[in-house]
C-alpha cells in the first residue's frame, strides 16, 4: 500500500497513507504500552502465587537466603523448619510442643483438631446447605427464592470474628452447656471444638446452598419432566433424578465448603482454644492448624526461631490441603458443566 505509486494522481493519496502510517505507529506504541501495563496487572496474580509458594518453601523446607552475620560477628542460623525437624517426626509424632523446653513437632494434634472441627461443620453445614439448595431449586417459587437468596448471602458476609464471638458467648453457654453438661452430664469446656464446629457449619451453609442450587438448576428440565411423566412424586424427582444427575457438582460444592472450613481461622481460634492434643472429645479445647499460626503470630516468638519457623510448616500443610480440595472440586465442577452446558 505504501510502496511506490508513481502516478501523479496518486501522490496525495500516497502522502495521506504515509501520514496515516506514522501516526498509527505512535498509536500502536501507546497501545502496546497500555497492553503491557495491563498484562503486568494480570501477572500480579501469578506473582502472588509464586510469593506464597516461595515464602512457605523457604521457611518450611529449604532456606535459600545466604547466611547472615550478626552485628557481633555471630552467624545467624536461618535454617528452614524441615532442615531442623525430620518429616518423619512431623508426620508421625503425636505431640506438638514447639513452645516448651522439650520440643515435639508432630502435626497430628493440629490436623486432628482441624479435621474434628471441619467434620462437625460438615455434619451441620452439608445437610442443611443441600436441603436448602433443593428447596430453593425444586420447591420455592421465584419470588420466595429471590427473597431468601440474598438473606442467605448475608450469612456468608458476616465476619468470622463475629461467628467466633457467637460461639463463645452463645453456643457454648446457652446450647452446649445445658444440653451436654446439665442434661447428659458431660464436661463442657469454655473453649471446645463443638461450638467452633457448629458456627463454622453455619458459616458454610450459604456457600453450599448457592453452589449446589446452581448445579441443581442446571439439570435440564427435560429430565424432570421425563421423571414426572413416569409417575414420580416431587420427592422421587428430586432425590432419584435431579440430585443424582447433579451429584458431581454437589460434591464439588461440598469440597469447596470443607476446604473453607479447614482454612477458617478466627471463629476457631476464639471458640476452640489452643490445646494441641489428639482427642476424640468434641467438648474439649483443641488447637487447629490455623489457630496455632494465629497464636504464634500474636505471641512473641523470636524471628528465626524454630517456633516461628514452625508456623510455615503448618501453613504449608494447610495450603496443600486446601489446594488439593480446591483443585479437585474445580475439576469436578468443570466436568459437570461440560455434561450439561
Amino acid at each position: 500500500m505504501s510502496t511506490a505509486s508513481t502516478s501523479s494522481s496518486d501522490a496525495t493519496l500516497s502522502k495521506a497513507t504515509s501520514s496515516l502510517h506514522r501516526s498509527a505507529s505512535l498509536v500502536r506504541l501507546k497501545e502496546w504500552g497500555i497492553r503491557s501495563l495491563l498484562f503486568l496487572c494480570a501477572a500480579v496474580s501469578i506473582l502472588t502465587t509464586l510469593g506464597i509458594v516461595a515464602v512457605l518453601f523457604s521457611n518450611a523446607i529449604y532456606d535459600v537466603s545466604p547466611r547472615q552475620v550478626g552485628p557481633n560477628g555471630e552467624v545467624r542460623t536461618n535454617e528452614a523448619f524441615f532442615q531442623q525437624v525430620s518429616l518423619t517426626e512431623f508426620v508421625f509424632e503425636t505431640r506438638w510442643t514447639p513452645g516448651y523446653t522439650e520440643k515435639h513437632f508432630g502435626i497430628m494434634p493440629l490436623v486432628c483438631g482441624t479435621l474434628m472441627i471441619s467434620g462437625i461443620a460438615a455434619l451441620i453445614g452439608l445437610p442443611i446447605g443441600l436441603c436448602s439448595a433443593i428447596y430453593l431449586s425444586e420447591y420455592a417459587v421465584p419470588r420466595t427464592r429471590a427473597l431468601i437468596k440474598p438473606v442467605l448471602e448475608i450469612l456468608a458476609g458476616i465476619p468470622t470474628v463475629v461467628y467466633g464471638y457467637f460461639a463463645l458467648v452463645f453456643v457454648t453457654p446457652y446450647i452446649l452447656k445445658p444440653l451436654f453438661q446439665d442434661l447428659l452430664g458431660f464436661n463442657v469446656g469454655v473453649f471446645n471444638a463443638a461450638s467452633a464446629g457448629i458456627v463454622v457449619g453455619i458459616m458454610i451453609i450459604p456457600m453450599i446452598s448457592s453452589l449446589s442450587e446452581d448445579v441443581l438448576r442446571s439439570v435440564p428440565r427435560s429430565l424432570r419432566e421425563a421423571a414426572y411423566a413416569l409417575g414420580s412424586t416431587k420427592f422421587d424427582v428430586s432425590t432419584r433424578v435431579v440430585v443424582p444427575a447433579a451429584l458431581s457438582g454437589i460434591i464439588a460444592s461440598f469440597l469447596l465448603a470443607i476446604s473453607r472450613a479447614v482454612g477458617e481461622t478466627m471463629a476457631v481460634t476464639i471458640a476452640a482454644g489452643q490445646t494441641a492434643i489428639v482427642t476424640a472429645d468434641p467438648l474439649r479445647s483443641v488447637a487447629t492448624m490455623t489457630s496455632y499460626i494465629v497464636n504464634v503470630s500474636k505471641g512473641d516468638a523470636v524471628i528465626g526461631s524454630i517456633e516461628e519457623k514452625s508456623i510455615y510448616a503448618v501453613g504449608l500443610t494447610l495450603f496443600l490441603m486446601t489446594l488439593v480440595m480446591n483443585i479437585i472440586s474445580q475439576f469436578v465442577l468443570r466436568r459437570f458443566r461440560e455434561v450439561y452446558n
Binding site: L223, E225, A229, R240, P244, V339
Partner: peptide, 24 residues
C-alpha cells in the same frame, strides 16, 4: 405415560432407567 421429542435417559444404567418407574 409420555415420551418426549428429545430422548431423556437419566444419567444411570440402562437397567436403572427402565426400573425407575417400578422402583419409585
Amino acid at each position: 405415560g409420555m415420551v418426549f421429542q428429545k430422548s431423556t435417559p437419566f444419567p444411570k444404567s440402562i437397567f436403572d432407567n427402565i426400573a425407575y418407574g417400578p422402583k419409585v
